[in-house]
Amino acid sequence: MKRKISLRINGKPYTDEVEPRLLLIHYLREVAGLTGPHIGCETSICGACTVMLQGRAVKSCTMFAVQADGREIVTIEGLAANGALDPVQQAFWNEHGLQCGFCTPGMIMATKQLLQDNPSPTDLEIRHGLEGNLCRCTGYQHIVNAVKAAAGKAGA
């Protein structure tokens, strides 16, 4: 039986009837029409689906949409304000922190979480902070550089 949920995504209200089994990632992509959060696995390892739920990073593939009822979600689409890139997005661009780009939205959201918890992380702290996000292209080095660059900027 479908259930009605109401939530805010990137500041906008959404109300929909959903099956309880509908995964949040499918809700975001198929119902809310977003393309930023991606699906890279089914075991909660890859992190490509990472979004912020109530201000904390979660894997939206490992949550049912009904669990997000009444909650506030921010996805990669919600980062750039008035066309100005978020400092983390800017840093990933400047430092070549991406290649195929598939992991990037999740990686950037995980970086937001990391810098929120630890504004001046060491290299090792950055690497551990991104343990929940796989990248197959970059070897992570330019990602680490990007996080460091973003950490150096106020407001990141």
């Binding site: 977003l34 689409e77 997005q89």
Partner: peptide
């Protein structure tokens, strides 16, 4: 030189197959 392809990728607006 930083990449031309990145703006769409870092904003989540690139269109992959499942999109």
């Amino acid at each position: 030189i930083r990449r031309q392809e990145d703006p769409r990728l870092i904003t989540g607006t690139a269109v992959y197959l499942d999109d």
